[in-house]
């Protein structure tokens, strides 16, 4: 799933300076699951922003709605009375935030979260990055462990000289992805795969303004 983290409430408050009627929109999928943009978090941020305004002696009306996904028109269209608001804060990932911005072009849409990565839910509240969405998956060659996302340098042929007893030189609490790959392949009896040099990737596939049309 897409992993995001809450923005500091001060930052959200600053974005909303000058508005006194705001809609906060939660997303019921990825950001709910990563405890960042579901109904509970929207509730909390709305309370926090309202408190901050109260302290300053200002009134702010904050509407709260949470929809299943903000990256689908049909769900976005379930939002009600959006035109009544001067600004929207979206608690979806970047895709969802832009979904709202595209649907409600007359109303400024602010991000309520920072979208971080495509990750794995390790345990309650702990997420790890697993995928860079590079557009050219090589997991078949690397024992199911992605060096693009999980090697600090994104090396396609590793490890580098910075590997340190299974850890990465950047931090002793980060595994060296290439040691993980080695161990995985060894366990599968496929160390010969490790010796094959991977060709440079086509980073064009990871470029900007990507579209995907499966209808063709």
């Amino acid at each position: 799933m897409i992993v995001a983290e809450p923005k500091p409430v001060e930052e959200i408050k600053k974005m909303l300076d000058g508005y006194d009627k705001v809609l906060m929109v939660g997303c019921g999928t990825c950001t709910t699951v990563c405890l960042t943009g579901g109904e509970r978090e929207v509730d909390l941020m709305a309370t926090a922003v309202r408190l901050m305004h109260k302290v300053e002696g200002k009134d702010i009306q904050i509407g709260q709605q949470t929809i299943l996904r903000q990256c689908d028109w049909e769900y976005i269209d379930e939002l009600q009375n959006v035109e009544d608001y001067q600004a929207i804060v979206s608690f979806a990932c970047g895709a969802g935030i832009q979904g709202l911005a595209r649907r409600f072009t007359n109303i400024p849409v602010m991000p309520g979260v920072n979208t971080n990565f495509i990750g794995f839910n390790e345990e309650y509240g702990l997420y790890s990055e697993q995928c860079k969405a590079c557009g050219e998956c090589i997991l078949d060659k690397t024992g199911g462990i992605c060096p693009v996302a999980r090697c600090a340098k994104g090396l396609l042929n590793g490890p580098c000289g910075g590997t340190n007893n299974g850890k990465c030189e950047i931090s002793s609490d980060k595994d060296c992805a290439w040691v993980l790959i080695y161990n995985q392949l060894e366990g599968q009896g496929k160390l010969d795969q490790f010796k094959q040099i991977l060709a440079p990737k086509d980073y064009g596939k990871a470029g900007n303004i990507r579209m995907l049309d499966l209808r063709k």
């Binding site: 409430v9 926090a48 408190l51």
Partner: peptide, 8 residues
């Protein structure tokens, strides 16, 4: 943290 940010 929230009420600190709110100046309370």
């Amino acid at each position: 943290r929230i009420i600190e940010a709110a100046g309370i």
